[in-house]
């Protein structure tokens, strides 16, 4: 018989602070990176895509000390945990002094959603920064995916804010996705 322990309270979140880089994104310090902007190696099957953007605060000032992490399925809509060992699906980037970031990866496939619905291809995103006490979670969808119209998560977002979750493909082929933490054009963040 399993003995159930008393419920344990969660360890509260605290800000990442301004000084994480030498541990979490230590390239400039000569440290070994757990992950970086290059999410897919050459060997991984799928369409190569690049995502670029900037992070801005409520005054439109670039956020130069944020860490962005992405987590994604592979081209067939499978996650690493399901056995696609060649592809971790995890990327991590520190914003530049100008608030910029980018990821080079493969386009994820569509995947199952709640109640039998299909989710359009997307990346899940965590944003950590000084002044952010609890991780901000959002998603990056892609402007050229027709599945966006029936995506069950986008459907939960008021229509006038949905665009903040959709990366727009430029004439150079690169997807643009800016993150606005507060105010006009504020990115949709999720409560999980």
């Amino acid at each position: 018989m399993t003995e159930r322990k008393d419920d344990l309270g969660l360890t509260p979140s605290q800000t990442i602070g301004p000084f994480f880089a030498y541990a979490l994104t230590p390239r400039a310090y000569g440290g070994v990176e757990l992950a970086n902007e290059q999410v897919a190696t050459e060997a991984v099957a799928g369409e190569r895509i690049s995502i670029r953007g900037h992070v801005y605060d409520g005054d439109g000032v670039p956020v130069g000390d944020a860490m962005i992490e992405i987590w994604q399925a592979d081209a067939d809509g499978r996650f690493h945990a399901q056995g696609n060992a060649g592809f971790t699906g995890f990327g991590r980037a520190e914003t530049t002094a100008e608030g910029g970031y980018h990821f080079d990866t493969i386009r994820p496939g569509a995947l199952p959603g709640p109640n039998g619905a299909q989710q359009a291809p997307h990346l899940t995103v965590s944003l950590f920064a000084r002044g952010v006490l609890t991780r901000l979670a959002t998603r990056i969808y892609f402007s050229d995916e027709t599945g966006n119209e029936t995506d069950p998560v986008l459907a939960l977002v008021p229509a006038e804010r949905r665009g903040t979750l959709i990366a727009k493909r430029g004439t150079d082929g690169v997807f643009r996705f800016d993150i606005r933490l507060q105010g006009e054009g504020e990115t949709v963040f999720f409560d999980m």
């Binding site: 409520g58 199952p112 959603g113 002044g131 998560v153 504020e186 949709v188 999720f190 409560d191």
Partner: peptide
């Protein structure tokens, strides 16, 4: 200037 001012959207766990 960094805390979102809009309410968070409740996300189902997929």
């Amino acid at each position: 200037k960094r805390a979102p001012s809009q309410p968070l959207i409740l996300l189902p766990h997929t």
